[in-house]
Nucleic acid binder design. Structure first.
Lengths: 216, 216, 216, 216
DNA sequence: TATGAATGAGCTTTCATTCAT
DNA sequence: GATGAATGAAAGCTCATTCAT
């Protein structure tokens, strides 16, 4: 019901408490993201992070215990919105498998194109995998595994219903991630020179996924 | 006259004076690769590279002008074998498009699985794209573009012959690189914990590519 | 009102909390002077400067941006007292030209004999002129030019009054600097083995300046 | 007797041996002079000296035992022509004291203006006095002392004859070196921006020396 | 004679980290 | 909470010197 909006309009009543700066840690993490993306973990100077956040180095050490900790918390914090968006997508009810797959291709490409955080955090994880192996594992089990599990469940169900072929792809649902991943890597390598033909690309990915190359 | 060979055969009397160590630069680059892969560009110490190569820091600076130069030359040098292998693959004559596509899926996955250099250089390029943008561009035009051009030419030709569908994928041949790229990223993120089911994955990729998910 | 002093006398009640070490930069510059004098710019190690100042290398870089900057600021800072002394001398009113010239010879020789800073900074400027050309120019316009201008004005005036000859020296007032400069160079070359006959030398310089060698 | 020249004409018989490059050491010293003048002792790289001389670093070590040795021999070698010129000047017979003094002022200023070696070696000695104290002493006893001794002898003699005053300057003959020294220092500090009014300056120096400032 | 390769000590500079205020 | 000052352990790079050829 659209009446809910009325309730939302009352929301501002609560935040009235003039909390001045309890967002400090958040601002630091946002600044850290920019610097880490720009220079990588090792070449990023906490002093630059501090300057960007409008504080001094000492302040960072008041909120975080070390540079590594800043990195880890930054990745965790800035991944949350993406994680929530993905969970929201997966929780949608889309009974028709073809519609679902089309939506999935749209959603995953959209994520790559519009969510700079998601895009760049992939770069950071690839780059720093050997320094932060646990962080990588954490991300795989939080992001990748749920998606693959969900995809696989849908594919198994659809195959049982006969709405898709009994394809070996069912055992490797991550192959459905391949097209958006290619796009992600391209954008990372090309320094954000965005693909102008994004929509055509997405359509091509959908077509390939559903129909393959061979004549029917 | 072949009699000259007799004289030549006495040549070995001049002992081992045949160049002592003109392989130094190569050994340094090989050592540099290992260290850069292990720690990334910024966190790699040239002293460690030197130690691994069995020389001292000064020697590196005798052969290379800076750390950046070591990195760039390392990437160029260690990419050569992969480039040659790829060129050799593309020059093979495989008239049948289905056979060609199957071969391509095999070849590209094989590259990822067996060529550690190729795999890790992708990591380094993703990680250091903003520090070495020209190197990235160089790689794209040397590796990616020729492959895509070749793939596109084959797809166009096959579509004309009717051996494949008139698919929109023809405009985005890089989508054929998606499966091996996913594999590459996985291997990078999982710290070389190899996929035990590689062959099944390759088969799945082939099936998806040719047939898509929908029932025929 | 002089009563204010009574109030000031109560000031010490605010204990020692008045700045702990805001003299750090000054101490570093003093230490730098000693080391630069001892070894020259290039051969001076910032580590030695730090040790002499009782701090660590890092502290120097907290206060100064580079070794060159330390040198430049050191020269500027340690020249100030000499500059002030010179300005004070030039501002004295000594109407009689002979008395003035005698005072000038005394003053300039005294500077060389007693002001080690002035003496050694000349060495540093001569030695590093090609590395710090701007610093040299700065010194010439701050030290040399004002003196020469002042001397010339006095000589012109005295010649007009007939108290000195209409000498061509009036066009080259820097010639009056020659005797103390010779002394300065000697002291620099002889490693501070001071001239025991300094007073006789000064008298000789005065006599030569006023009377020349020819019989009257 | 000019007949001696006949004997000299036979001299060429000996140098016929095709000594190709026994000037190597000399070329190295000439190159070293330029580099030392440009950067000072410590900041001069033997590699640059070698490059300028058209040889490699190793060659320098074949002819000289160390960098310090190159410096010392360079100073000695490039001082020789100046020393000879000075000795030649002092050996001239100029009975008239006024003519002699005029000649001396001319000669000494000429040296400074025309002999870049002499000019710059003074800079090097001032700059490196504490690293090469013996070299400085050597120069003082070879250059300065003979000049001063000669000047003093002439002044004593002239005073005895009454051709000059019984001036206290007789005890400090080095004061006669003051004017050319000022010029030398100026040229060193001003990076060879030569004094356009050199002749007027020299005339002024002569006038001051002979007549002083006071009216006669 | 001359050189190119190699060395290694040492230098300037950087920066994560600490801590008194 | 926040800061400025200080630290000290590197790290990149340099260069006098050596030496086999």
């Amino acid at each position: 019901m659209k009446g809910a909006k009325i309730i939302d309009s009352t929301a501002p009543s609560k935040p009235e408490k003039i909390r001045r700066k309890p967002e400090r840690p958040g601002e630091i993490l946002a600044a850290a993201f920019e610097e880490f993306v720009l220079h990588g973990y090792a070449a990023t100077r906490l002093e630059d992070v501090a300057a960007r956040a409008g504080v001094t180095k000492g302040t960072i050490y008041f909120h975080f215990e070390s540079k590594e900790n800043v990195f880890v918390q930054m990745v965790r914090e800035l991944s949350k919105p993406t994680l929530l968006a993905m969970q929201e997508f997966l929780s949608r009810e889309t009974p028709d498998i073809v519609a679902f797959l089309n939506d999935f291709v749209d959603f995953s490409h959209d994520l790559v194109l519009k969510d700079r955080y998601a895009r760049e955090i992939l770069r950071l994880l690839i780059a720093e995998a050997s320094r932060f192996p646990d962080l990588v594992d954490e991300h795989i089990s939080e992001f990748l595994d749920p998606i693959c599990d969900h995809l696989q469940a849908r594919l198994v169900q659809a195959a049982k219903e006969g709405t898709i072929r009994q394809s070996p792809v069912i055992d490797f649902p991550d192959l459905l991630l391949a097209p958006p991943l290619v796009l992600n890597i391209f954008v990372l390598l090309l320094a954000d020179r965005q693909d102008a033909e994004a929509q055509a690309r997405i359509a091509a990915a959908k077509d390939l996924l559903l129909n393959g190359l061979l004549p029917r």
